[in-house]
């Protein structure tokens, strides 16, 4: 079988297009596919619709780069150790009317991926009921939900949420083989449902291993190759968020990012310049994610983050 190994640049060029709907892995400060996210910014893929439970940093930086039209999310939360939780770019663009947000909650959102991965049109959910999540919808959403009566228990309300089937899912995992069999360690958050619900899947990984190895222990595989279209090897590929067992999140860098994004919201032209300078320095002026890793402190910093992970697990 043909190898699916390619560079981040090739993967984004082949599978992400203007106007695409894109789902992301990542929960807060863990497991966000930042290497691929940076590449999307360099290639300026625009008018994107982002889908996920906690879209955290990938959403915020893509919004800040002006590439996002709409988000369908449970939340956009980067909060950690005193770092403000709301992504400031998301806040800025929404408050300025430049971004559509379709608010769901995590159970509703993962149920939408669950419907998608099972080839079903919708999924019953018993949360969101009675909340304003059902009262408001984004301007471009035609129908957000339906409430029916349980056919087996007359009088009981059941909420239906539409299936979500993103054009592309982008996930970061620990290991994958050349065919795309991917192994995740630690919690999987929404990755299993998201990946199987999406039409194309880009997997970035800390290490590529041989399919000889994965085939010896197939029960360890989280995502089998049939769902995967591209495998990108990128060590430290979720920096500044963490990868379980590999490295902790980079609190200092996350804080700096949020400071730049906050400046763009609150300090007018000079603040917006500060954010643009961040994008220029850490994303646009880098040829690859490896260049970025040099700029954030290189091997010395990365080894510190590795050590921090060792201390907490």
């Amino acid at each position: 079988m043909n190898s699916k190994i390619m560079t981040a640049s090739e993967a984004v060029e082949r599978f992400i297009f203007d106007g695409a709907s894109v789902g992301f892995s990542g929960q807060n400060v863990v497991g966000a596919p930042m290497a691929i996210t940076h590449e999307i910014i360099r290639q300026k893929k625009k008018n994107l619709t982002l889908l996920g439970c906690n879209l955290s940093l990938p959403a915020d930086i893509l919004i800040g780069a002006g590439l996002v039209r709409k988000c369908e999310w449970g939340t956009c939360n980067i909060g950690y150790r005193g770092i403000p939780s709301m992504g400031y770019s998301a806040r800025k663009y929404y408050q300025e009317g430049k971004l559509e947000i379709e608010d769901y909650e995590h159970l509703g959102m993962v149920s939408r991926f669950l419907a998608g991965e099972m080839g079903l049109p919708f999924m019953p959910v018993m949360s969101s009921l009675g909340s304003d999540i059902l009262k408001y919808k984004a301007p471009s959403t035609e129908k957000k939900f339906e409430i029916i009566e349980n056919p087996w228990n007359p009088g009981e309300k059941v909420l239906l949420m539409p299936a979500a089937t993103p054009d592309v899912a982008i996930v970061h995992v620990q290991r994958a083989d050349e065919m795309g069999d991917a192994i995740m360690e630690g919690f999987t958050a929404t990755i299993p449902e998201l990946v199987r619900a999406s039409k194309k899947v880009i997997v970035s990984c800390e290490e590529i291993i041989s399919s000889e190895e994965t085939r010896n222990y197939p029960e360890m595989t989280t995502i089998p190759y049939i769902y995967v279209d591209a495998v990108v090897e990128q060590p430290w590929g979720s920096h500044p968020t963490a990868t379980y067992r590999y490295y902790d999140c980079d609190v200092e860098h996350l804080r700096m990012y949020q400071e730049c994004a906050e400046a763009a919201l609150k300090e007018g032209k000079s603040g917006m310049q500060k954010y643009q300078d961040y994008l220029q320095e850490y994303v646009l002026s880098c040829d690859t994610f490896n260049d970025y890793l040099e700029k954030i402190g290189g091997v010395k910093k990365l080894m510190e983050l590795k050590q921090r992970m060792r201390e907490v697990i």
Binding site: G79, R91, E105, I133
Partner: peptide, 13 residues
């Protein structure tokens, strides 16, 4: 909005 916050996350469920 005057201020946009992160949204529900797991709070609603």
């Amino acid at each position: 909005p005057k201020v946009r916050f992160p949204g529900s996350g797991g709070a609603n469920p």
